[in-house]
């Protein structure tokens, strides 16, 4: 793998990322993403033997609060921002595979 992405690979990545893209877009993105990967490939050639990875600038620790009820966002206000809502819930299209 030398950082060159095919149109098919881009189509696969787009599916993983839940992005509907056309064949023409796949070709454009394949070229652009390949150029970016080629540039960042310098990173892969650096000697990092024995160097630990950093996921965060400072050490993270779990932050917990007292397990006590407190006010949260108003349901109706939250649902007001949703594209579709019904009976106090977010409304989505069919998820399971059976015919309606």
């Amino acid at each position: 793998m030398s950082g060159q992405l095919s149109t098919e690979e881009v189509a696969h990545i787009a599916r993983l990322a839940r992005l509907e893209i056309t064949e023409e877009e796949s070709a454009t993105y394949a070229g652009q993403l390949s150029a970016i990967l080629e540039h960042v490939d310098a990173v892969r050639r650096l000697d990092t033997a024995g160097v630990p990875p950093t996921s965060h600038a400072f050490e993270l620790r779990n932050v917990l609060r007292a397990d006590e009820p407190r006010p949260c966002l108003e349901r109706d206000e939250v649902l007001a921002g949703a594209p579709r809502a019904e009976d106090g819930r977010f409304l989505v299209p069919r998820i399971l595979g059976e015919e309606p």
Partner: peptide, 21 residues
Amino acid sequence: VRYGLRVDAPDVETMNGRTRA
């Protein structure tokens, strides 16, 4: 689902993909 744009589709995965596109 929770905020902003939705492009309608018969199933949720297609809706996700079209909305994001």
